[in-house]
Amino acid sequence: MKYNQYADGFSPAPTCLKNCLLAFLTGGAICETGHLIRAAVMSAGADAETAGMWTTVALICTAQLITGLGWYNTLGRIGGAGAAVPITGFANSVVSPALEYKKEGIILGTGAKIFSLSGPVLAVGFSVSAAAGILYKLLGLL
C-alpha cells in the first residue's frame, strides 16, 4: 500500500492532545453528573441499587432530550469520545437514527431504525453476558 502512505503524508495529524483533553473533561463531567444524581437520590432515601437505576434513566432521558433539541451533535463534535462513550452516547445513538428516519414512517422508519446503531451494542452486550453465564456454569464456578 505505497499510495496509502504517500497520501497519509498530506492528511493533517489529529490534534490528539486537545481531543483527549476535551474527551476527558466531557466524559468526566458526564460521570460526575451521574455521581451527583446518584448521591441526591440516595440522600432521598433510596438504596444504592435503586439510585443507580434512576441515575441511568435520568442520564439517558436528558441526553435524548438534548438530542431532540439538536445540541448533542455539538457536544459530540467538541467532546468526541467523551460524549460517545458514556451511557448518554448510547442514548444518543438510540434516538438519533429514530429521529432521522421519522419521515419514513413511525413503524419501519423510527421503529426499525431506533436500533440501527444501538442494536449492535445490545447484540454484543447480551451475547457476552450470556457467554459469561454459560462459562461460569460449565466451569462450576456458580
Binding site: N19, N92, S96, L117
Partner: peptide, 17 residues
C-alpha cells in the same frame, strides 16, 4: 449524510481529512 454516514443528530466527531 443520512445515506452515507451518520444521522444528523448523532454526536460524532468528523475526521480532519
Amino acid at each position: 449524510e443520512r445515506q452515507f454516514r451518520m444521522p444528523l443528530e448523532h454526536g460524532n466527531q468528523r475526521a480532519l481529512s
